[in-house]
Amino acid sequence: MIQNPGFLLTVLAFVAVIGPLVFVHELGHYLVGRWCGVKAEAFSIGFGPELFAWVDRRGTRWRVAALPLGGYVRFKGDMNAASMTDPAWLEMSAGDRAESFPAKPLWQRAAIVAAGPAINFLFAILIIATFAFVHGESRTPAVAGIVEQGSAADAAGIKVGDRILSFNGRTMDTYTDMVMYTRIRPGEPVDVAIERNGQRLEVRTKIGAVMEDDGFGQKFRVGRLGIGAGEPVVERVSLLRAPIVAVERTGQIVRTMVETLGQIVSGGRSVKELGGPLKIAQVSGQAATLGLESFIFFVALISINLGFINLLPIPMLDGGHLLFYGIEAVQRRPVSPQAQEWAYRSGLAVLMAMMLLVTFNDLSSFGLWQSLSGLIG
């Protein structure tokens, strides 16, 4: 078992992950805002008490706060850090209104909001592209090199040498595609299309479920079909193809996130699997113990996660703002201030409930509740 990191390394690793990613996210908003001629009044990394700050020559207050769990850019015309429009912007002078956020065309406001999640995805793509260029791309064929005796694949009659064509209609190009598909579907039925001796066959089985240890004492349930890879194939990746590989890999990760979230919403997966800042901090420390490359790849994964979460259509998040802009585009007028206020209040309640849930899950995964029940008992 890999040794768990100490408290200090965990805290430092967490700050090293979250701090730069929050900065990158908010920098996306800031840069596109400047390009659109909007004045940024404040650029904050973190929330809560201000640790230090300075004002640049454009009048933007750059601040670092005590709680590094997020950040914001407050543009002229914003009422607060959630980018709610200040009704007083209409009373500004013509010059001030011209550089305020609410005065900009719909497409510019949407571009400014979308820039945050977009730059998180681009940041991750840059990292993954670099890894692909340096280490190559795994292109091991989706061929059964090994079939474990007694496994789901064995029960379905899959044999060594069979080429796996698809799972439930989804094409399997590589062995990695197979692993990513089955891993998040323990216990689910699957129709498998295979090619054997030039003939196409269809078999049906149920993906097996096994408990795995992450090396740090945490156990989790994953799906496994019981098919081992054949001879590994790693192809060199040119500088021009590296971004394409990175985009494809990022798309796979996002699709897995969407499918996993759908399983939680539909009840197919427990909400206990949702993690929050405490879990990210723990895994940040663990990734740091595995070396620089593992840590950097973990940063890429969290960057994708941050971009994805911010695109959820929840008011207070970037996705909620984009939803309002979509409605505005359809009805050709902004959503009423009353409806926006109601939506923001509801969105805040949803986010607070989610934070409480994931924090509860994090503390449960640390064994806190078991320890407390032992003390009480």
Score class of each variant (00 low, 15 high):
Arg332Thr: 04
Leu165Gly: 11
Arg345Asp: 12
Val113Asp: 08
Val271Ala: 15
Val160Glu: 15
Ala349Glu: 01
Ile264Trp: 07
His135Thr: 11
Ala132Gln: 04
Gly70Leu: 06
Thr174Val: 05
Gly187Asn: 01
Val17Gly: 07
Val265Met: 13
Gly347Ser: 13
Gln263Trp: 03
Tyr325Asn: 10
Gly6Thr: 05
Asn197Trp: 05
Met211Tyr: 13
Ile45His: 02
Gly33Phe: 04
Asn168Asp: 15
Ile304Ala: 06
Val143Met: 10
Gly275Met: 10
Ser83Cys: 15
Ser303Met: 09
Pro20Thr: 02
Glu273Trp: 04
Glu50Phe: 08
Ser270Asn: 12
Tyr344Arg: 08
Gly33Met: 03
Gly33Lys: 06
Ile227Met: 14
Pro232Glu: 09
Phe47Gln: 05
Gly70Asn: 10
Gly161Glu: 15
Ile309Glu: 08
Arg58Thr: 13
Phe220Asp: 08
Pro189Ala: 11
Met92Thr: 00
Met79Val: 01
Leu317Tyr: 08
Trp107Met: 13
Arg185Phe: 01
Leu12Val: 12
Asp78Gln: 02
Ala300Val: 03
Leu363Val: 02
Val358His: 07
Glu91Gln: 10
Ser238Tyr: 05
Ala144Ser: 05
Gly217Val: 04
Ala103Thr: 15
Gly377Gln: 10
Leu290Val: 10
Gln338Ile: 14
Leu322His: 09
Val358Ile: 07
Thr205Ser: 13
Met354Val: 14
Lys159Phe: 03
Asp177His: 10
Lys206His: 05
Met92Ser: 04
Met211Glu: 15
Gly169Asn: 10
Arg204Ile: 03
Ser336Met: 12
Ser364Val: 03
Gly230Ile: 09
Glu259Met: 08
Arg224Pro: 00
Phe297His: 12
Phe297Val: 15
Asn197Leu: 14
Val335Thr: 09
Ala343Val: 10
Met257Val: 13
Arg241Ala: 12
Arg345Met: 11
Gly208Trp: 00
Val190Asn: 01
Val210Ala: 05
Leu12Gly: 06
Asn4Thr: 09
Ser93Arg: 05
Asp191Phe: 07
Ser373Tyr: 11
Met172Ser: 15
Glu99Tyr: 02
Ser303Trp: 00
Ile309Met: 09
Arg333Leu: 12
Pro87Leu: 08
Gly374Arg: 08
Arg221Trp: 01
Leu27Ala: 15
Gln199Tyr: 11
Leu311Phe: 00
Pro189Trp: 02
His29Asn: 11
Leu317Pro: 14
Thr140Lys: 06
Ser270Leu: 02
Leu51Asp: 12
Pro68His: 11
Leu323Tyr: 07
Ser365Gln: 12
Met355Tyr: 12
Ala242Ile: 11
Leu274Val: 12
Leu12Met: 10
Val22Ile: 05
Leu201Glu: 13
Ile146Gly: 14
Val247Pro: 04
Phe133Pro: 04
Arg224Lys: 09
Pro87Trp: 04
Ala13Phe: 05
Gln331Glu: 11
Gly95Pro: 00
Val233Trp: 08
Ala42Cys: 03
Ser238Ala: 04
Tyr325Thr: 12
Phe43Gly: 00
Leu225His: 08
Tyr181Arg: 09
